[in-house]
Amino acid sequence: MIEALRLIGDNLIRFRLSGPEAERYLAMTIGSRPVPPAVRRAPDYTIAVSSGYGHPLEIAEDAEVPVAFEETPRGLTFTRADYRLAISADRREADIGFCDYFSLRTALLNWLSTVLTERRWGLIVHSSCVVNDGEAHLFTGYSGAGKSTVAALSRPRPLLADESSILQVPEVGRILVHDSPFRNDFPEPAGVSPVPLRAVYLLEQSTSVGKRRLRGSEAMLALFDKIVHWKYDNRLSAGLVRQCKTLVERVPVYVLEFQKNDRFWEVIS
């Protein structure tokens, strides 16, 4: 048994890993950044992670794969061919069985989305997120729209996320973006976190550069299917929608036409 502490958002998590393979995959999935000494306290959550569960999916990564859900007095269980996630009734402990990088990553996002949604803490959004002048700019769009291209073109600005952004939606005040450990191409920590969210951009590749603000209802429709969410309880889904509504009410959402160069920062800043 190997133990590791990790910070995701403002949650301190103690991982209990079944062995070196689980340790290696955890590092691939959420990195191996040490927890700063200032955050050392009793962990908020404990997650046991074991390799050797199920078999890898033989389909494209972004295809919809059904997840079986069960709720019992002992807690919640999500099961898919390639992972199993069990969360205790008090939500403080979880057990993950996985078989590869993709399954562990999905299981951890499934876990995070579930606990954050239940606490009405915030949202996970498929997007990259860049810090400019102390404020966060979030870039989203369909697969291939250019989320990671924008992240690459924005360097050396700090990146809070390159594919899954973690947004805290407080009851009052600004939306905050936390440094996401779920990274694809750019593992370097942002070094600053959390950062207030200035604007959201829906990416459209174009031959010109420009931005157009969306009305609230358009913004809501555009953002809604970018939320990372495992639906299992109608009331929770409704809560998530309200948080998405709060997001578009507090933060302007634009369509950003961009070419594959960094000129888009001229129309943003």
Binding site: R215, G216, S217, M220, K231, N234, S237, A238, V241
Partner: peptide, 15 residues
């Protein structure tokens, strides 16, 4: 949901 006077319907079963 009322978004600045425009209506958005959320189907909670299909999300």
């Amino acid at each position: 949901l009322d978004m600045e006077g425009e209506a958005i319907l959320l189907n909670q079963e299909t999300f």
